[in-house]
Design a protein around this nucleic acid. Structure first.
Length: 467
RNA sequence: GCCCCCAUCGUCUAGCGGUCUAGGACACAUGGUUCUCAACCAUGAAACCCGGGUUCGACUCCCGGUAGGGGCACCA
């Protein structure tokens, strides 16, 4: 089988931050390109001067880079005005497009639907300069436009439902359907992979290809949308949609990628964890689902936990160091930080959790003395336990207190003598050290805090007991 | 209103006419492990939208309903 070169594009308009849906569209394009040794183009569709913002463009590029989706080329529609103008003039000259000065159609009170303009047959006529004219495509009437969607199969749309759609405000201001088609054509895009919300644009763009007598049309694949919990198109009211928010909340790009690709695609076996590199090999476009998928935060968190566990300590330090400094100041050394992360990573869903949950390791905790009580213990029991713990820690050699496994072994063994209920030693000790109902184990905390700080916190606990 | 798309556990999904007493993952429940939390292990509850066909046989094919989604701009 002969294949011409695969070229795909992700074509966002910089009118908002890159959101999850856009990220997934970009991902599928990227994966398809990689899988087929093709090219992945990023095309910034900034023809709408009013709504397009530099800030959003930057956010899109930053987010894509963060995810690791590198583009091979980048284009800006705002820099291609001359190209659009040339083709617009051609269409006008050939009588395939016409000027129209009809008012914007009201969409508020009941749709009148697409329409065919009464001016469509007066093609050659130049507008008088004091009228406001736009350029419409002269849509052929009563024809079925058929295309074969890679994931949906045959889709048929009759041109009667299209009407004479607008293709430009003026020769200098092309509109979406026109600019996108010209670019897809000129950039030799082989596969157009985009959201389901573009299905209705596809026949319009096909009509334009035909108008220019283009022989080889791109293939289309329309992705299902990401839905909110109530099944409607995901939007702000379903929670965060902008990708940078997820970065900020401590999600790893690996987790986002893995999660996003599984919203609609799977390898048809039980495996769920895939790196981007693995996906580049495994991804099969036609296997993507037709049905929209609901965004499920729990599953994302599960992926994220997975990838946090896969990270080595150095990587996690790099990822969190800045946040730690911001949160707790810079008065700690790297060795200490490494230990903090080592014990807190196990409980973290996000890398922000690692930072936030280790508060008690940086600050001396405050708590009420009742928290020190384990089951039927009274304060005398607590006191005995804490004094015993003090003794234990004092006896610890430096090599012992620096060894996580050794500490665990010692504490677990010693705790065993407390009437067979280790909680009688470990609970009060853990609370004395952490001030928390839930935290890492006391021996892990000793490992992080060291002997001196641990002893000092136990003394504080003993002091609370007396008051 | 018109057009298009779509339909398996709560969610993401496997299934491509008999192997389905419908499999996995997340979430949930119970038990185990355990100083707490997390993790881990075991177990459990949980689905083929409805109605017609086709067929010896339909979750799987066809048609029709219904539900859901998307689109219908001088936005992209």
């Amino acid at each position: 089988m002969r294949h011409s070169k695969v070229v795909v594009r992700f074509a966002p308009s910089p009118t908002g931050f890159l959101h999850l849906g856009g990220a997934r569209t970009a991902l599928f394009n990227y994966l398809f390109a990689k899988k087929n040794n093709g090219q992945f183009i990023l095309r910034i569709e900034d023809t709408d001067l009013v709504r397009s913002k530099k800030e959003f463009e930057q956010d899109i590029k930053d987010s894509l880079e963060w995810l690791g989706l590198k583009w091979d080329k980048i284009f800006y529609q705002s820099q291609r005005k001359e190209i659009y103008r040339k083709f617009l003039e051609q269409l006008l000259e050939e009588g395939k497009a016409f000027y129209c000065n009809h008012q914007k159609r009201a969409a508020d009170d009941g749709f009148s639907g697409p329409h065919f303009c009464s001016l469509r047959d007066k093609c050659g006529e130049k507008p008088r300069f004091n009228d406001r004219f736009i350029i419409r495509f002269k849509t052929p009437r009563g024809r079925d436009i058929v295309f074969n969607d890679i994931i949906r199969g045959r889709i048929t749309v009759n041109t009667e439902t299209l009407g004479d759609f607008a293709i430009a405000r003026s020769l200098k201001e092309p509109l979406y359907n026109f600019a996108a088609m010209i670019d897809d054509w000129q950039m030799k895009i082989s596969h157009i992979i985009r959201g389901e919300d573009h299905i209705s644009n596809t026949p319009k763009q096909i009509l334009l290809y035909e108008a220019f007598k283009v022989e080889k049309l791109p293939l289309y694949a329309h992705l299902p949308l990401i839905l909110g919990k109530d099944y409607s198109k995901m939007s702000k009211r379903h929670g965060d949609t902008a990708l940078h928010i997820y970065k900020q909340k401590g999600f790893l790009p690996e987790a986002i990628i893995n999660f996003l690709v599984f919203l609609g695609w799977n390898p048809k076996n039980d495996r769920e964890i895939f790196s981007l590199q693995e996906l580049e090999r495994e991804f099969i476009l036609k296997d993507v689902q037709k049905k929209g998928a609901i965004f499920n935060l729990d599953k994302l968190l599960w992926f994220n936990r997975n990838y946090i566990r896969k990270k080595n300590l150095e990587e996690l330090i790099d990822l969190t160091r800045e946040s730690f400094v911001k949160e707790y100041g810079s008065k700690f050394d790297l060795a200490f930080l490494a230990r903090v992360i080592e014990i807190e990573r196990e409980r973290a869903n996000t890398i922000v959790d690692i930072v936030k949950n280790s508060h008690y390791l940086f600050r001396v905790p405050h708590y009420s003395r009742d928290l020190l009580l384990w089951k039927e213990m009274d304060f005398n029991d607590v006191k005995r336990a804490l004094l015993y713990a003090k003794e234990l820690i004092n006896k610890l050699s430096n090599t012992e207190s620096d060894n996580r496994d050794k500490l665990k072994e010692v504490f677990l063994r010693e705790a065993g003598i407390f009437d067979g209920d280790r909680g009688r030693l470990l609970w009060p000790l853990r609370v004395a050290l952490s001030g928390l109902k839930t935290s890492a184990s006391p021996f892990e905390i000793v490992y992080v805090l060291g002997k001196d700080e641990s002893l000092s916190r136990i003394d504080k606990a003993l002091a609370i007991l007396i008051t």
